[in-house]
Design a protein around this nucleic acid. Structure first.
Lengths: 342, 342
DNA sequence: GGCAGCACGTTATACGTAACACCTGGAGGG
DNA sequence: CCCTCCAGGTGTTACGTATAACGTGCTGCC
């Protein structure tokens, strides 16, 4: 063993296999069919293996102009939802020999910094959640590849962004399933614990709920907005539940807010679901930790990530992925019951 | 405006500023003092600005052999704890013009795949949680930069790995605080709901708890292991709480497991904390969503990430960061009370 | 007045890869 | 017997950057 070898290059492999560097590139790039004999190809692969050769990605990127890497812009990493989105995207990416780098937009790393200082690698494209919109403007300003990086939006208002592709969730349908469930149980006074986050997905939840209720002849929901944490959810839920007449059900924009609603109910001496029904959104792990377990809307987070990555790959391939809409489903657990009589 | 310009290079900037490419490199690389006049430097910067120049990172990496990028290996993204670790690491990295790329080790992206297919960029170093140990072996095998990438371990048994640096949590102290709290309240029959994850941090929790109890003259804890989710925590907690004599307190290795313990207690008709005290570990957002709010051990997740990054930077700078140990603190909430008399 | 030396740059090169254009020896056709 | 053609490669270049090595004119000093 010599002193820690300085990492073999394709030329080293070529020398070891008795061929030229060009041949090594052809063989390992899987472009050799009809241009290199199988015997030689095997020899090259054997030599590469023996030397433990790994291509220098910087050199490759420099040469090809592509990095086979996508940036995934999410509002924060502190969410199981986006963890799953990332997983889905990474899986599809891996199948296509692509990589995914995360950029968690807001807190901590200030918006003042260049988003790309985080993802130092050059990028081929961007997948962005609409919840991280403010980071996106920085992205476009930062420009990177001369300004126009292919962009796929997740859960964004159709046509509102200059994205090359969009992957949406059937939010309206999910809310309608919630509303139908509650209406079917007999509820009519429904409150809406909304997320105070400027994003299409939450605007859509609010609009859909109002529509679903009024379509059924029920009054529109009372509404309070809260930041996406338990404490602020508690505060806002208290306001909703202390109104007269008291709502018999609280529809929450997020499971975290629903946890706040649980606490509010308990503080007011109300039982869930006997005195007040509660629904969530997202089906986080938290949903089954609560007592009673939370009836919520499950979002196919992994599929969102996977579809986003597929859309981006399509764009890079010159196609138009258009807008995909993924179905969501109501998960009925123990947090809803008929309203108390009277 | 010409048709979407093909992205300016340093040579374009040079032409625009009327200097050579080398000068551009010097100025923008901030190495011009004493070698380029301030006037020229300003002109270069102005030209770069005007053209919207961004250096090609692939070319830079190829030239310098460094990417200013670290890989952060975590067991899964589905954890608020590691989300915070990432945040802390990214902050420190940004201060030093470094980037951080995440590699979530297990599920989904199979261990068979090369860890670096995810982080396509070449790397300067690795920060790894001990919980992702199996991915690490793949890392070492994959080798990348000829095998020996600087490595910093998080929460790993001192001296067990060939890491150049280590950042640990004062786990033993945290457990002792929990134990002292419970002992002070009068508990003596304590159960341990352990995490079924092969990692030093959990081994340490178990050993420390046993030590703390026996040191105080109490019997060692009964113990069950569970996977890190609510459902399996529930299962194991039921086993613990159905034993006779029933333990009066359950110490959990993780807040998620504590949520399982809550459910087990409720299922057995036991109240928390009147009939059984419960403690968690990690202080996840979940901890305050539970009723009663969970007494748990807060880990300085962000500081762990920050310290890990600092240690890695020190290693890259040729120094020896040694082992840092970060303090943890008990957060007293409503889930502990004196044991029921009798 | 000549020469050292500095201030201010420039020229040239290498990093490792991919891919285009070219070469060569032998088989097969006329 | 010569020409063509193809399989099976090779030589060369460029990607954009950082940096070592090398000019040049001017100032000041003896």
């Amino acid at each position: 063993m010599s002193t820690s070898s300085p990492r073999p290059t394709s030329r080293d492999v070529a020398k070891a296999a008795g061929v030229s560097q060009a041949t090594v590139s052809l063989v390992l790039g899987d472009k050799w069919r009809g241009r290199v004999s199988p015997r030689t190809a095997d020899a090259v692969r054997a030599a590469a293996d023996r030397l433990g050769y790994r291509p220098n990605l910087a050199a490759r990127s420099l040469r090809t102009g592509s990095t086979r890497t996508a940036l995934l812009v999410v509002p924060a990493l502190t969410s199981d939802f986006f963890a799953q989105v990332h997983l889905g995207a990474a899986e599809v990416a891996a199948e296509h020999d692509f990589g995914v780098v995360l950029y968690p937009s807001p807190e901590g790393i200030g918006p003042a910094r260049d988003p790309f200082s985080s993802a130092r690698a050059a990028l081929d494209g961007v997948i962005a959640s609409s919840m991280a919109a403010e980071a996106l403007t920085g992205l476009q300003r930062g420009g990177l590849q001369g300004g126009g990086l292919p962009l796929v939006m997740l859960d964004s208002e159709p046509g509102s962004t200059p994205a090359a592709g969009t992957v949406n969730l059937a939010i309206a349908d999910g809310i309608r399933q919630v509303a139908d469930h509650l209406l079917g149980l007999g509820h009519r006074r429904v409150a809406h614990l909304a997320a105070a986050v400027p994003s299409w997905t939450f605007d859509e939840r609010a609009a859909s709920l109002t529509r679903a209720l009024t379509d059924a002849g029920a009054p529109p929901p009372t509404r309070r907005a809260a930041r996406l944490d338990v404490a602020d959810g508690l505060r806002a839920a208290l306001e909703l539940l202390e109104a007269a007449p008291r709502p018999t059900a609280v529809v929450c924009d997020d499971d975290l807010l629903a946890a706040g609603a649980y606490k509010a109910a308990r503080r007011l001496g109300l039982r869930v679901p006997e005195d007040v029904s509660v629904t969530g959104f997202d089906d986080l792990p938290l949903a089954v930790a609560l007592e009673p377990e939370l009836t919520t809307v499950r979002l196919p987070a992994r599929e969102v990530g996977a579809a986003g990555m597929r859309a981006l790959l399509a764009v890079l391939d010159g196609q138009d992925p258009g807008t995909a809409v993924l179905p969501v489903s109501l998960v009925r657990r123990g947090s809803c019951a008929p309203p108390p009589s009277g």
